[in-house]
Design a binder for these strands. Structure first.
Length: 597
RNA sequence: GCCGAAGUGGCUCAGUGGUAGAGCACGUUCUUGGUAAGAACGGGGUCACGGGUUCAAUUCCCGUCUUCGGCUCCA
């Protein structure tokens, strides 16, 4: 079924939900109820009434009852006055009506069913709602199966300043089979949740005493993190980046000069007073790198200068925003700031996109399928949010757009998503449940160089101002780890696996030879362990399998006498007995090439 | 931060107005095995924390903390 048809069914189902709610709680004020990616929702103002998931069976039963009377939707055009009369007690609908009429839109109602509706004050028959349309022809026939999923608070019109409404989420499908299929897929996705896998595979933990949003990486999680860091540093050094280390703490003045302070005050940790200095944990690294740049006079011959850092940063995220490793309060950015002449900027940005493509490829992510580009633009009229310089914005946005077009990157444009100092290209990654998040970013900054008075000397000996490109190659390492855990479902490619090989001696008599094998693997820098517990071989294999260790080496009398190892993969394949050196070479080359199993 | 839900041994969960139970994990002993769980015995919980109701609270009520689903925000 095409998406449009499915959406129309879901939108119809949202009406059905509203109808049921109005029947059950007649004083409720309804607002809006669109179809969304996975289903639909409807926002209500229930007044003092509390609604929870315990009410779902009751609501669903009422929906089923009402649906029997819904054979079609009738469209009716009404005057503004009529509409306002109908919704006289509902400020939300009144606001919408005013808005529509101001925009010169026609006001339409859609009605379905013929039962008596307890809708004050009209007491009309059937369920009537202000709506722009987009319904199924025959809801009775089309809504084959529906289910309410969750209840949540949501601000009216998405603004924190407005009243919080009660949102009910649901989904529906033409058939029960499709609904069951959907629910099953959701369950499957849950199994890949990085928080669950992080616990199961012992990658990271949280402690109430340490604090929320502050993950503790175990030795296994740390191994993955270290491999990622090594990969980033090695590749960036190859590409001419200069890796530096700057302090995660600095005087608050630094962020006042940069202009970050007023914008990000709410998400920065409070100032610490020490002696007569005011210090702050850094929420970003940019100004630190600027000071390095400014530490000496720069010539055009040096540009572009690419300072990179594996950089811990501190942001006070609201408690409700924290999620596993995806959103934390201390994160580590694979950060860099490139100081360039504006004429070189385009090439610099292209190089950055190429680097990001390189990493994505290493992670097995496909352009267009797993990730796409978002050109995040400013909003000229919003002078509070964005630095005012229309010409510079225009120029910067065009450069970024040209880069995307010229490199034939799949991208879309989004207004009002830029940084305050310039537009950016965000690399949007899809997670297991299909949700898109910003993973990496490239930003064009024409503001900071001014604020910090950054300069270089050109061919004619004159002072010029460079442009700064901010970029994160593999983003925040915490978030990237979360993505990768979910992408691989915990079965990491060999190079990332915390334990690459598990040695399984069949009996105690094979321990000595196993120890010998262990030493040889270790000498080759392979991460290996030996399971010397007094358990059966089957139990040891099961344990290694559950830990998703890529290779198991079964060692018994036969292997010992032939100086071999019997290799089993985590997919359950028995590769048979092979020469130990041959196995070592195989694993080493897989690690070297970062190939997936 | 806001709306809703949840918190019981290391993990996954059951259960109760009369101070708790399973499986896995852990420890000891026995078993020495050929590609996903060998057996017996044992240790381990202020039932998140604080207050209230009650003769009695892990259970009921209130508050706090943490986690989860959303909203807002975001790398």
């Amino acid at each position: 079924m095409d998406k449009e048809k499915l959406n129309s069914i879901r939108h119809s189902c949202a009406h059905l939900l509203a109808a049921a709610v109005m029947e059950l709680w007649p004083d409720t004020k309804r607002t809006i109820g669109p179809a969304i990616g996975d289903g639909f929702y409807y926002d209500f103002d229930f007044g003092d009434q509390k609604i929870s998931e315990e009410d779902f069976p009751k609501i669903e039963a009422k929906m089923a009852e009402i649906l029997k009377t819904w054979a079609k939707f009738e469209k009716k055009e009404v005057s503004v006055e009529e509409a306002k009369q109908f919704y006289q007690d509902n400020p939300y609908k009144l606001e919408l009506i005013d808005e529509f009429s101001k925009e010169g839109q026609k006001i339409t109602f859609y009605k379905s069913g013929n039962y008596k509706q307890s809708l004050k004050p009209s007491q009309s028959s059937g369920f009537e709602d202000l709506c722009k349309g987009g319904h199924s022809e025959n809801p009775q026939k089309d809504i084959g199966a529906f289910k309410l999923l969750s209840v949540a608070g949501a601000y009216w019109r998405g603004s924190e300043k407005n009243k919080m409404l009660t949102r009910i989420y649901g989904t529906c499908f033409p058939t029960q089979t499709e609904l069951d299929e959907y629910l099953k897929l959701q369950e499957e996705a849950k199994k890949k949740d990085h928080r669950k896998l992080g616990k199961d595979l012992d990658l990271f933990v949280f402690s109430d005493v340490v604090g929320k949003g502050l993950p503790l990486l175990t030795e296994k999680g740390t191994t993955i993190r270290r491999e990622l860091e090594r990969m980033v540093v090695d590749e960036e050094l190859k590409r001419g980046y200069l890796h530096v280390i700057t302090p995660p703490l600095a005087k608050v003045d630094l962020y006042k000069i940069s202009g970050h302070y007023p914008y990000y005050k709410d998400t920065m940790y409070p100032v610490m007073k020490v002696d007569d200095e005011e210090l702050i944990l850094r929420p970003m690294t940019c100004p630190h790198h600027f000071m390095l740049y400014k530490s000496k006079q720069r010539s055009y011959k040096e540009l572009p200068i690419k300072y990179a850092e594996i950089s811990p940063q501190f942001r006070y995220e609201k408690s409700g925003e924290l999620t596993g490793l995806m959103r934390v309060r201390v994160f580590t950015l694979s950060d860099a700031h490139i100081f360039t002449r504006d004429t070189q900027a385009k090439q610099v940005i292209k190089d950055v996109l190429d680097l990001i493509d390189y990493f994505n490829k290493a992670f097995g992510l496909k352009k267009g399928k797993d990730y796409r580009y978002r050109l995040s633009l400013g909003e000229r009229s919003d002078e509070k949010k964005y630095y005012k310089d229309d010409e510079a914005w225009e120029k910067a946005e065009n450069i970024l757009r040209e880069v995307l077009v010229e490199s034939k990157a799949p991208f879309f444009e989004a207004k009002n998503e830029a940084a305050f100092y310039g537009p950016k290209i965000d690399i949007q990654l899809k997670n297991v449940s299909g949700k898109e998040e910003t993973a990496f970013t490239v930003q064009y900054d024409f503001v900071m160089p001014k604020r910090f008075d950054l300069k270089y000397i050109d061919e004619e000996g004159k002072e010029q101002q460079p442009v700064v490109i901010h970029r994160a190659s593999i983003g925040a390492l915490e978030r990237t780890m979360a993505f990768l855990i979910e992408k691989y479902g915990g079965a990491f490619p060999v190079w990332l696996s915390p334990i690459q090989v598990m040695i399984v001696p069949i009996s105690d008599q094979n321990l000595k030879y196993s120890q010998n094998v262990l030493e040889q693997l270790k000498d080759s820098n392979i991460r290996v362990q030996i399971d010397d517990k007094a358990e059966t071989m089957q139990a040891k294999i099961r344990n290694a399998q559950l830990q998703k260790i890529p290779y198991m080496l079964i060692i018994g009398k036969r292997e010992e006498s032939e100086n071999k190892v019997a290799v089993r993969t985590r997919e359950g394949k028995d590769l048979g007995a092979i020469d130990l050196n041959e196995f070592i070479q195989k694993v080493k080359s897989e690690i070297e090439s970062k190939s997936s199993l």
